[in-house]
Simulated scan of single mutants.
Amino acid sequence: MSFQNLNIQHQKGICHITINRESKLNALNQLTLTEIGTAVKAALANSEVSGIIITGAGAKAFAAGADIAEFAQLDAEGGRLMAQNAQHNVFNAIEQANKPIIAAINGFALGGGLELALACHIRIASANARLGLPEVTLGLIPGYGGTQRLTRLIGRGRALEMILTADMITAAQALELGLVNHVTAPDVLLTKAEEILEKIMSRAPLAVAAAIRAVNAAGTGNGFDTEISEFAACFNTADTREGISAFIDKRNPDFKGE
């Protein structure tokens, strides 16, 4: 499968998806968003892939927002369709993925670029990263889930301040707010992402997928019921029996994803 705006590499069970529009600061035009959705779905369907890392080409940007030129001719219905399609095919697909997806933020993550990172399960930022949602400076608001996912991560007041001021924050500030999980030196960003992903990949894959679904249900009104259902379903898997047996036998488990 070939892509115009992405580089895809597979290594040790990890699918690396790199947004490859460095001259445009990896801005997310509609083609790029479509390709990200396609690449993510292909990786999730690939039995040889256990996790995904999304990053941007070069050192300057993870993804510096949407391609604003594409907004110029939109009316309300066009804006609605753009947001709906992106949410369903890209951002929700990432958030609801049954395999762990890490955003390795290597520079500017602005607007849709930050929203892409927010949809990922874990975020790691280079120390030189800058993050923000500048949409109100264009007379817009975040339309790819930013108002919802940022609020869940850092709380209503802090989310409103970021969105309403349109200010960028540093990687260190993002770490303090809980927006990112780790901050690293630029040259070890991908190494740190791989390290975390490899640790997750050593765990029971069906349990990892169940945990993602349960965490995603937090705050929806049926989070506890989802957790109970997912917990119960684990007992029908061979991996749970293997994990319990390995613990009792004091050995490392051999999970098969069954």
Rank of each mutant, 00 (worst) to 15 (best):
Q4M: 12
N5P: 01
N5I: 06
I8F: 09
Q9I: 02
H10A: 10
Q11D: 15
G13A: 10
R21P: 00
R21N: 06
L25C: 08
L25I: 04
N26G: 04
L28T: 04
L33C: 08
E35L: 03
I36Y: 09
T38C: 02
K41N: 14
A42Y: 02
N46W: 07
E48A: 15
S50E: 15
I53Q: 05
I54N: 08
G56V: 07
A57W: 01
G58L: 09
A63D: 01
G65V: 00
D67Y: 12
A69Q: 13
E70I: 10
E70Q: 15
A72M: 05
Q73M: 04
G78N: 07
L81S: 08
L81Y: 09
M82E: 06
M82D: 02
Q84W: 03
V90H: 12
N98D: 13
N98K: 14
I101C: 05
I101S: 10
I102G: 04
N106L: 11
G107R: 03
G107L: 02
G111E: 05
G112Q: 06
G112R: 08
G113D: 08
L114E: 02
E115A: 06
L116P: 02
A117M: 11
A117L: 10
L118K: 00
A119T: 07
I122Q: 13
S126D: 14
L131F: 00
G132A: 05
E135S: 15
V136M: 14
G139R: 01
L140A: 15
I141G: 10
P142F: 14
Y144A: 13
G146D: 06
Q148G: 12
T151Y: 04
R152G: 14
I154P: 02
G155T: 05
G155A: 11
R156S: 12
R156C: 06
A159N: 11
L160T: 15
M162V: 12
I163F: 06
I163A: 01
I163L: 08
L164M: 11
L164R: 11
D167Y: 07
M168H: 04
M168C: 07
Q173N: 02
Q173M: 03
A174C: 14
L175Q: 12
L177C: 07
V180W: 04
T184E: 13
A185R: 08
L189Y: 05
L189N: 03
T191W: 01
K192F: 00
K192E: 13
A193Y: 08
A193Q: 07
E194T: 14
L197C: 10
L197V: 09
E198T: 10
E198N: 09
S202F: 00
L206E: 11
L206F: 05
A207V: 06
A207D: 06
A211D: 04
A211V: 07
I212G: 01
R213Q: 10
A214E: 08
A217V: 02
A218I: 10
A218R: 12
T220K: 11
G221T: 09
G221W: 10
N222Y: 14
N222W: 06
F224I: 09
F224L: 13
F224S: 08
F224W: 06
F224C: 05
D225R: 12
E227C: 14
I228L: 14
I228A: 15
S229M: 04
E230A: 09
A232N: 05
A233Q: 09
F235I: 02
N236T: 03
A238R: 03
R241A: 14
F247D: 05
D249R: 15
R251D: 04
K256S: 14
K256W: 01
K256C: 09
G257Y: 10
E258M: 09
